[in-house]
């Protein structure tokens, strides 16, 4: 029997209250697209996984939520960490995942790879967490829709060039489609499928 090279980093030290705080941050973000919130500041997840991404997953994922990790994350310590602390089964098909984590710094993504829900059950879709370098610099995205008084402006680093077209297609399929959560360090911002793209700038 071989022992792991390094001990498993800790999850929430107080799952009840840290889980609740992380969820409320995530809920606030989902309720107000464009609002940057803080989550998981006390977490020190393994390399490759950002604290806010770890906090979001630990707050809402468990053995009932199939989790997909992108190629950039699959081989690393994120998988064992999330399996151990959340108990989420790891799946290889993104379209069968309830949650997916990928790293925008190293990977492009196609939203259509993930579960879109169906007309009777549009909730049966994947929530996609994208780790990026910054939520204050990078491409500007302007959205309108539920949760937004007027318009909301987001800045997200590491977006694929065709993101605007992808998001428009995602919105056109409403109520089907994926919900996006962008994470940078211990910050996150959400783009629910209801958000309508009204402008973008490099």
């Amino acid at each position: 029997m071989t022992l792991p090279a390094s001990p498993m980093p800790a999850g929430f030290s107080d799952p009840v209250f840290e889980g609740q705080a992380a969820f409320r941050a995530l809920m606030d973000a989902m309720v107000r697209p464009g609002l940057v919130v803080t989550a998981g500041a006390a977490l020190a997840p393994p390399a490759g996984l950002m604290p806010a991404a770890a906090a979001a997953i630990l707050a809402i994922c468990d053995f009932e939520t199939p989790l997909w990790l992108s190629p950039a994350l699959q081989g690393g310590a994120a998988g064992p960490y999330l399996r151990f602390h959340a108990g989420a089964p790891l799946v290889t098909d993104p379209a069968s995942a309830a949650f997916a984590v990928l790293d925008g710094r190293h990977e492009a993504f196609r939203l259509t790879d993930f579960a879109q829900g169906d007309a009777s059950y549009p909730d049966r879709s994947t929530t996609v967490l994208v780790q990026v370098a910054s939520l204050t610099a990078g491409k500007q995205i302007v959205v309108a829709g539920p949760g937004i008084a007027g318009i909301a402006e987001l800045r997200i680093e590491d977006l694929p060039d065709d993101f605007g077209a992808q998001w428009q297609a995602n919105r056109a399929a409403f109520p089907l489609g994926v919900d996006l959560i962008f994470v940078s360090g211990n910050q996150l911002v959400a783009l629910p499928r209801s958000a309508r793209l009204v402008g973008e700038a490099a």
């Binding site: 889980g19 809920m27 009932e64 879709s125 539920p146 629910p192 209801s194």
Partner: peptide, 18 residues
């Protein structure tokens, strides 16, 4: 906590699909 997580997931979907 498992029940709360299940309800929280439903709440997030509900917010995304008003």
């Amino acid at each position: 906590e498992q029940t709360k997580r299940m309800i929280r997931r439903a709440i997030l979907k509900a917010i995304a699909i008003p």
